[in-house]
Design a protein around this nucleic acid. Sequence first.
DNA 1: TGAGTAACTCACTTTAAAGTAGGTAGGGGC
DNA 2: GCCCCTACCTACTTTAAAGTGAGTTACTCA
Lengths: 111, 111
Amino acid sequence: MKKSNSSNALNKEFLHRSCSVNEAIDLISGRWKALIIIYIHEGQNRFSLLKNILSPISDQILGRQLKDLEQNGLISKTIVPEIPVRVDYELTAKGKSLLSIFDSLEEWVAS
Amino acid sequence: MKKSNSSNALNKEFLHRSCSVNEAIDLISGRWKALIIIYIHEGQNRFSLLKNILSPISDQILGRQLKDLEQNGLISKTIVPEIPVRVDYELTAKGKSLLSIFDSLEEWVAS
DNA sequence: TGAGTAACTCACTTTAAAGTAGGTAGGGGC
DNA sequence: GCCCCTACCTACTTTAAAGTGAGTTACTCA
């Protein structure tokens, strides 16, 4: 996490200290993150596959979100030394356990 | 929802169309919203009570988040014509049903 | 040689959320 | 009269997320 003295950043810390639900929401609320997790689970596990299916996304954003998800332990990355080199993403246990929460959210929002 | 032709807004629509999980996350990812819901549930059901407990928040932000939550059907508002006038907030059924999802999220993030 | 693909990265701009300052209305208390 | 309270609202600035454009490496195919 970046250090900053802006109220904005301090308030974020306050929220994380107050309740870990806020932390959880931060991890998944980045735009595209939920979909990336769902599609990786469905087998769209490579950069170019995700780029195609999330058509309006740019390379930059996709790369950034994948990096975030990896750093937060929701997905893992394997570089397969083929020619051409291949990079596979997959959900970690933590990533997989999100899927049932997504189901609940989907049900909840439809209610 | 505001209409706009920016990619930013169009991408948001794309995400909502793609998967309703994104809609659900939008409803709860506004800063302070999860805590407001939790505190209202715990009986901190008035503007000034919430303001005290969420000490770094400003009147403006609190008002805005409460309005959002009301418009999205997560909380309801009752004006009690006492002197001085009192305004009570409470969770709707939809708001209450979020609490168990918050529990799951809390567990998940701790895992 | 030139174009294309995969998986990125850097530097930049734009957008919308978050935050700040100050105002409002109707009363109360000194 | 004057400042305090509750529960807001308007207009503005700041911040960080989202998005854009172009470049990179390394290899393939025509």
